[in-house]
Design a protein around this nucleic acid. Sequence first.
DNA 1: TTCGAAAATGTCACCGGTGTCAATCCTTAT
DNA 2: ATAAGGATTGACACCGGTGACATTTTCGAA
Lengths: 363, 363
Amino acid sequence: MKHEGDPEDALPSSSPQAVGGEAVLRGKATINDVARLAKVSKKTVSRVINESPFVKQKTRDAIKAVIAELGFTPDPQARALARRKSFLIGLVYDNPSPQYVVSIQRGILDALEGTDFQLVLHPCDRSKPDHVARIQSFIQQHKPFGLILPPSVSEDEPLALALNEADVDYVRIASVELDTPSRMIRTLDGDGGAAAGRHLAELGHRHIAHIHGPLSFRSTHERRAGFERALAETGLVLRPEMAVEGGYTFDGGVSAAEQLLAQPQPPKAIFAGNDEMATGAYVAVRRAGFRIPEDISIVGFDDTPIAGRLWPALTTVRLPIREMGSAAATLLLQTAEGMKAKKFITFSPEIVVRGSTAAPSKD
Amino acid sequence: MKHEGDPEDALPSSSPQAVGGEAVLRGKATINDVARLAKVSKKTVSRVINESPFVKQKTRDAIKAVIAELGFTPDPQARALARRKSFLIGLVYDNPSPQYVVSIQRGILDALEGTDFQLVLHPCDRSKPDHVARIQSFIQQHKPFGLILPPSVSEDEPLALALNEADVDYVRIASVELDTPSRMIRTLDGDGGAAAGRHLAELGHRHIAHIHGPLSFRSTHERRAGFERALAETGLVLRPEMAVEGGYTFDGGVSAAEQLLAQPQPPKAIFAGNDEMATGAYVAVRRAGFRIPEDISIVGFDDTPIAGRLWPALTTVRLPIREMGSAAATLLLQTAEGMKAKKFITFSPEIVVRGSTAAPSKD
DNA sequence: TTCGAAAATGTCACCGGTGTCAATCCTTAT
DNA sequence: ATAAGGATTGACACCGGTGACATTTTCGAA
């Protein structure tokens, strides 16, 4: 028998794949399929997808029902083409510590979970003269929705300038307030340095040294300044010859520590500007025949996974890196939702006392 | 005065932005601009972009000149929409070691440099029941050009099956030959295990133990089998109570080593299935009051950066992880270029002798 | 009941490419 | 010189959405 205008006529087949009725289900439903079934224009469906407030509740519900039934999801490529804006979030990084990088990635991915956005990696070699140009061309070509810049890329002023010109939103993660209009995740590295200084002072240390990062990193100065401030509070000073650069790298940490130990009166406590250099200090200290923490105490910064894997475990200043990554991504997404986003989110570091620090031995 | 058909007519303005002539330069040139200036159809330009062989050399040269002049680059989003295939390469991973992950990423990025492809991260929690579905939906939505699966995701058969159904190309990185039609990067983990065994045997060790990874990892079995094979060659056997699981994690390594040391006759050499567990073994061994390598030798696997940062530096089996990532991406790209790609690329591990192994002490 | 502004919804071109297939241009064999 | 047949090139719809603007509803005020 024949049904004139039976339920199937909801699919008057204007789209070639809508032949078997359920053919819509398999493969991929498009906005046209939804529009047809909901008996509205695709533009209205588009409005629902984009949460436009100008759709009647009843219409919205009906369309949402069809969307759910079809399992429709808008095509990111098509949307990107029409909007001239892709659904990619770029992580532009240049960080010597793999631990840091992975943690940031994790955090961003936490925040992106369940959204349409994807995280794309864009390492950046700041020593190359064309690093800004490369990022610009990435932006022009792929039109990322936003960028996240952890240190030290976050401190690159020429880059920030270029980004302001370009049509991208971005969030920077840095230890100091930067003078650009961008939003940022701020870490109070100074407070972290102070916590390290206070901890060593409270243990009774007087011969204290510092291995700092490259002078080109703002965090280097922040951490050191906080450290010295805390020492000053208990009447201690960081003598100039007790401050050595370690480049934020393991090897740099080794040689910086060697340099400190070679002095007439070697330190009994070392505050390294990051865990990587602290790990290097471990090696140098042991190679010189000293014990940790009996002879020399060591404090790191970051609390990357390696801190807990050393023996003894490293006392360090913890930065909630993963959470920071997550916060950065969230800040970016809020723009997407049209919400008025906060300009800053601040994170405070805290000291994690483990086995690498102890009261100094009596001479 | 008036120029009929002056040079400007090369831009008969069919595109709104082509008003000022050089307006084409600023912003972004499209295929239409190229076609107009080269006086050919956009389809022909498309052919040139895609290196179709059916374009006369002269035409090709002319178009290429225009492309260069305009600095034209095809829009990835538009191409993706038309081809139903994006320019994303997905890294689907689930690996406990951050070092490994970063190295793989680096390698992939090395290979992607200069291409239109972007690397997107897609962590995958294999313990969740819907992990395959999530990846499927990622594929359906974002239509990635290809996926790269390092261990242990590479060993997930249900996933591989789903991927074969789906419309994606993928490359797996694994230690054994897998029975699917996909291409893969193969590592000879067995040889690595054998190298470790041979090294310890040559040093004169007899009381040897092994901390292995999870039984669900193929590499666990490969590494152990190779290790035992090498021992057998010198008449040694790995006694059952000398083989303990450490889950490929740091904590697992600690407790596995503790278990070994608690035995009536503790081992004088330990081969850990990865560096992460070897690091854990360091801690347990020291906590128990033994020295490395004087009392106990330790060998790791992978040669992740941490190996060189321990004290003494860890003797380990090096896997060229970064190169493997790069090779995987290259394999994927070769399909893009229509080249006949190799099915397998094999990498051999090699032992890196550092400070954590020495001849056994006399009892 | 009627009118007008606000609220909803629709129309249609366009984003920047690619696929399909028809049209045109060269060669070479006859 | 000429037709056949492959080599080139072009026309045009379409990929799956969005933007700008037009049109239709809806509803309170007059």
